[in-house]
């Protein structure tokens, strides 16, 4: 990882020095342990602030909409690169398609899981090989990194951002650590009633803060359906039916567009499970149409095309 970080800084410095881009969006360390923060670099010297580690949890493609008038280089993991491909397909950046600085991802550490594994506030966390050293005021533990990965990262089979213009790190063999996304598996084993109960219990904590929406690169509608007053699709309070409506529609709007990065779930302050829904839909799209988001730059998303050969068995 240290090598990757070094190369990342060098490349960024070079891109900015040669003025190939106006801006590089990457990750930097900041005030909280187990986290990084998005950073916006405009000068070659600024590249020194870039970091690469297992806490680079945001999908930086979400910022590209804001900077569509600039030539932007963006640091992307496998999943993030797929989001950009999907956005290009939706013709989001006709003038300046972003330059992808791809990093081969080592899978990310789930900070919420780590927090639950220790008693007391974590003040420092560093990665050492396969280990994660976590320190607090009265404790110091070393954890096995791979036991603390995000669900979406455990099942990831696209860690190498092949679509990137610049690839940092060596391509890896793409294997999932688990059979399916652990929470999708769990969800599938439930009866329809249990599924609904689980869904309702999760969404009942929702604040409608829309961090999940804002963190997602694919949620870029000028007016989200929840904000529209004419027509009014949905009320604004916290009734279970409105919460359910928001979450179902959000998930459906992502079908065939979601790269499974999990940025929505990580953004949620209430620890609400979100990726089991989107990943389940991704799975269905893969099974029905053989399509995975952002793998082939030219393939049109299945829900925006019609082919008489499409499977229709689910229409009853």
């Amino acid at each position: 990882m240290a090598m990757i970080q070094k190369k990342l800084r060098e490349k960024t410095k070079e891109l900015l020095a040669k003025k190939e881009v106006d801006l590089v969006i990457g990750f930097s360390d900041w005030t909280l342990p187990l986290r990084t923060t998005p950073i916006f670099i405009r000068t070659p010297e600024g590249a020194e602030h870039l970091v690469w580690n297992s806490f680079c949890e945001n999908n930086l493609a979400a910022y590209l909409h804001k900077f569509s008038r600039l030539k932007v280089g963006v640091v992307v993991k496998g999943c993030d690169a797929r989001s950009v491909v999907a956005l290009n397909l939706e013709k989001r950046f006709p003038n300046h398609p972003p330059l992808l600085i791809g990093v081969v991802c080592q899978r990310l550490v789930d900070r919420k899981k780590v927090k639950k594994a220790v008693k007391g506030e974590i003040l420092q966390a560093v990665e050492q090989g396969d280990l994660l050293l976590v320190k607090g005021e009265n404790f110091e533990v070393s954890l096995k990194r791979d036991d603390f990965l995000y669900p979406s990262c455990q099942s990831c089979t696209h860690r190498t951002p092949h679509q990137a213009h610049i690839l940092i790190g060596d391509p890896v063999e793409e294997v999932s650590l688990v059979e399916t996304h652990p929470e999708v598996g769990e969800f599938e084993r439930k009866s329809p009633e249990e599924r609904w109960d689980f869904f309702e219990k999760e969404t009942s904590r929702c604040l409608r803060c829309y961090a999940c929406r804002e963190a997602c690169p694919m949620c870029y509608c000028g007016e989200c359906f929840v904000d529209s007053s004419r027509p009014k699709w949905i009320e604004k309070s916290l009734s279970p039916s409105d919460l359910a409506f928001y979450h179902i529609v959000r998930a459906y709007h992502q079908t065939g567009r979601c790269s499974g990065c999990g940025a929505c779930e990580r953004a949620c302050p209430m620890d609400i499970r979100l990726t089991y829904l989107t990943q389940k839909l991704n799975q269905e799209v893969k099974d029905l149409y053989g399509f995975e988001t952002g793998i082939q730059p030219e393939a049109a998303p299945p829900l925006s095309t019609f082919d008489p050969e499409d499977q229709q068995g689910f229409i009853k």
Binding site: T37, P38, F40, K66, L207, R208, C209, Y210, A211, A267
Partner: peptide, 16 residues
């Protein structure tokens, strides 16, 4: 001009 750049405009910091 700079301080807002990374803010994604959710309501976490104000609701909470």
């Amino acid at each position: 001009d700079r301080v807002h750049e990374k803010c994604i405009g959710c309501a976490v910091c104000t609701y909470l």
